[in-house]
């Protein structure tokens, strides 16, 4: 079963009232299979973030549609989705615990005992239990990325969408985030994340979606993409030139 079905997304942006719009997505289509980890590969400015924003309706496509579990995006389906944007900015005056409470309160209504349990669990999972009462303004970049992940995992979602979750992190930070993603993968969660760090993709992803200049040039199992190449890096370089033609 497909957790997400993206069909023929096209999007243009106009940079001014009298300027010609620039098309950034061209008939983008792919599926995310339930329970599998899918990586979204592409260079900077190729349309990864715009695609993710279109999927979650932060940006409205000119054409195309996105289905979550065969239905349009609704409040019910949002309850089953965890999301972390690229370079998230957090309200610095909140503590880690208050930040999680804010996001918990925006979800389904439940008891404060249930929240405490879930928050402690999420903080433990991202190794931030000691920073529970620390203000987010005092967090390092790696810690912010992890608290962002904790927020995304708080409601025990079925689908996790992450935009560049390891970009800008030091090796330790990257390792921790990757460990968390591995753990979620083992638990059977559907993961979809974008990155241009191909080594991370190679370790984690069952499937790949490759985008180049706003067009999907490959979608399918990682093994198929890597066929006849020593690693994902080499496969990406070789395939991108061939498939873009």
């Amino acid at each position: 079963m497909d957790a997400v079905r993206v069909q023929n997304l096209s999007k243009s942006f106009s940079s001014g009232a009298f300027r010609k719009p620039t098309q950034v997505l061209f008939d983008v289509s792919f599926n995310l299979i339930q329970g599998r980890t899918t990586g979204f590969i592409g260079g900077n400015g190729q349309g990864k973030t715009t695609t993710l924003k279109c999927i979650l309706e932060f940006v409205f496509p000119d054409k195309g549609e996105v289905l979550f579990w065969e239905k349009n995006l609704s409040k019910e389906s949002r309850l089953k989705i965890g999301y972390l944007p690229e370079r998230p900015y957090f309200y610095g005056y909140l503590t880690a615990f208050e930040f999680l409470k804010l996001h918990w309160d925006l979800g389904k209504s439940s008891s404060s005992k249930e929240f405490k349990e879930s928050a402690d669990q999420a903080l433990q999972r991202v190794d931030l239990s000691v920073a529970r009462d620390l203000k987010l303004s005092q967090f390092s970049k790696g810690m912010l990325q992890r608290i962002g992940l904790a927020q995304a995992l708080l409601h025990k979602p079925e689908l996790l969408i992450l935009d560049e979750p390891v970009s800008g992190l030091d090796p330790d930070g990257r390792w921790i985030v990757k460990e968390i993603l591995h753990e979620q993968k083992k638990m059977g969660m559907t993961l979809f994340f974008s990155s241009h760090l191909l080594q991370d993709m190679d370790d984690l992803c069952d499937d790949l979606v490759v985008i180049d200049h706003g067009r999907i040039i490959f979608t399918g199992p990682t093994a198929e993409f890597k066929k006849n190449h020593r690693d994902l890096e080499a496969a990406f370089q070789a395939n991108r030139k061939r498939l873009s033609k």
Partner: peptide, 14 residues
């Protein structure tokens, strides 16, 4: 501009 609304609007809030 800060994109803080993305985290909020990803939740079930209209």
């Amino acid at each position: 501009d800060r994109q803080t609304c993305l985290l909020i609007l990803a939740r079930p809030i209209s």
